[in-house]
């Protein structure tokens, strides 16, 4: 990376700014000219299917992996020339809690505090403080081996925040946790943002991105393919749509015709679910028109309504595949 001059000027006002990052593993382009801009003080979601390059991006930005080309700045520190300064400004919590299982929670935090160069006394007080903040005080002097998954993840988050980093990287922070564990982590993330930390979070869960992220970057095959607020992304994919579910499958064609008449785009027919879906622009008027045509054609309707696409659908349209693909399930319904 050091051999390449910056491809474009980097903006030090951004929390994270990358231009044209490339990382090759043999034949695989894990990152293929990846661009990312993360504003300070926001939660930024990095969303993409399996193997899209999310983890690779996080590893490159946290100095664990060297990129083959491209430039990046984290909180104003240059990734190519000043890795130590980058490390002073970031926190990282990976997909698996990277804490020492033999030591106690307190000993873990004290060890990392010392390695963050706080000195022993401050490492101790900081450990106590963080244990309190993450509701681990009761388990502080137990071995981490006896912690639950959620507790481990919270300890991992605490260890990543010892220096109150300017930018926090979270790679799938809730994967493998039960709903309670997820809620605990979400709360911790919100608390972080409350302290002014910028959070870059990768996730497989769209509802998580929807809940937490101010902005979302969609990555596929190592490239950015979309970027915006959750609402913008949903709008970009086609705003509202009308959904009609019929009682009798034989009337699907009639329903399709009714829908086709109100939109410039052609409707999608989902036969197993006896459903017709069509994107529309003029919302209420279209709904009234469809209802009138359905009544005219004598179609027995089970349900008709106006809906916004979910992030899941946004994702599907953008990448051509779902985030957590369940081919067997789809096959079975057909």
């Amino acid at each position: 990376m050091d051999n390449h001059p910056p491809v474009a000027p980097l903006d030090p006002a951004l929390a994270v700014h990358t231009v044209g990052l490339v990382k090759r593993y043999g034949q695989v382009m894990a990152l293929d000219g990846f661009d990312l801009s993360v504003r300070r003080g926001t939660v930024h979601g990095l969303l993409g299917p399996n193997g899209a390059g999310k983890t690779t991006a996080v590893r490159v930005l946290t100095t664990l992996t060297e990129a083959d080309a491209g430039a990046a700045q984290i909180a104003g520190a240059d990734l190519g020339s000043d890795r130590l300064e980058v490390r002073r400004r970031i926190g990282l919590a990976g997909q698996y809690a990277a804490v020492d299982e033999v030591l106690t929670g307190r000993q873990n935090l004290e060890l990392f505090g010392r390695l963050f160069h706080l000195g022993r006394p401050r490492a101790r007080t900081r450990a106590t403080e963080l244990l309190e903040q993450f509701a681990l005080t009761d388990a502080a002097d137990k071995g981490v081996g006896a912690y639950s998954g959620g507790m481990r993840r919270r300890l991992d988050l605490a260890a990543s925040m010892i220096l109150a980093p300017q930018v926090m990287f979270l790679d799938e922070p809730t994967t493998g946790l039960d709903p309670r564990g997820r809620a605990e982590v979400w709360e911790a993330v919100r608390a972080l943002v409350g302290q002014g930390t910028t959070v870059l979070l990768t996730t497989q869960y769209l509802d998580e991105a929807d809940q937490l992220a101010d902005r979302i970057t969609v990555i596929d095959q190592g490239r950015q393919i979309a970027d915006g607020t959750p609402a913008e992304l949903k709008r970009a994919v086609g705003g509202a749509q009308i959904e009609v579910t019929v009682a009798d499958p034989a009337q699907l064609d009639a329903a399709e015709a009714a829908c086709a008449a109100v939109s410039t785009l052609s409707p999608l027919v989902d036969r197993p679910r006896r459903r017709v879906v069509v994107p529309v622009e003029e919302q209420l008027g279209s709904l009234a028109a469809v209802a009138a045509r359905l009544a005219e054609a004598g179609v027995a309707v089970e349900d008709v309504g106006l809906r916004r696409p979910t992030l899941d659908e946004v994702f599907l349209r953008l990448t051509g595949h779902r985030t957590d693909e369940e081919p067997e399930l789809e096959e079975a319904t057909r």
Partner: peptide, 12 residues
């Protein structure tokens, strides 16, 4: 366990 990566991402 990722502990090595944690060390490597720290300013030690």
């Amino acid at each position: 366990k990722g502990v090595t990566d944690r060390f490597r991402s720290m300013p030690m």
